[in-house]
Amino acid sequence: MAKAPRIGRVLIADDERDIVELVRIVLERAGYEVVTAREGDRALELAREHPPAICILDGAMPGLAGFEVLARLRAEGATAEVPVLMLTATVDEEREIRRHGVEPDGFMRKPFDNASLLSEVARLIG
């Protein structure tokens, strides 16, 4: 199958390798360029080096969790405007938002299907 033209750079960070791979494959097949990280610190580093079109973060990674990465991204001028899609498996997203004082641009509740992921990413990149 021919590669689609690259339409944006996506940063995906999740401690589950299978999820990172799944998101990468689905998005690459749709024509996105994908950068992956398995932990929050690394994701932050990658985002600072080269701000992506969108960050997809696992909300509850060990170490620096998605919400903490989000807070730091928002705090820095270069990354403040990067849209963030949070992958969650929590029961109460609102509580996470209150706890960290930051709200992501979108939520993707696990489990999600590939089509929903694609449409949400497309919506957030605009």
């Binding site: 299978d18 999820i19 509740r109 999600f112 299907d113 590939n114």
Partner: peptide, 16 residues
């Protein structure tokens, strides 16, 4: 919570 993450992979990879 624990069911959801593996299920994401099952559904996603089956689709793929």
């Amino acid at each position: 919570h624990e069911l959801r993450t593996p299920l994401t992979s099952i559904i996603g990879y089956t689709e793929l």
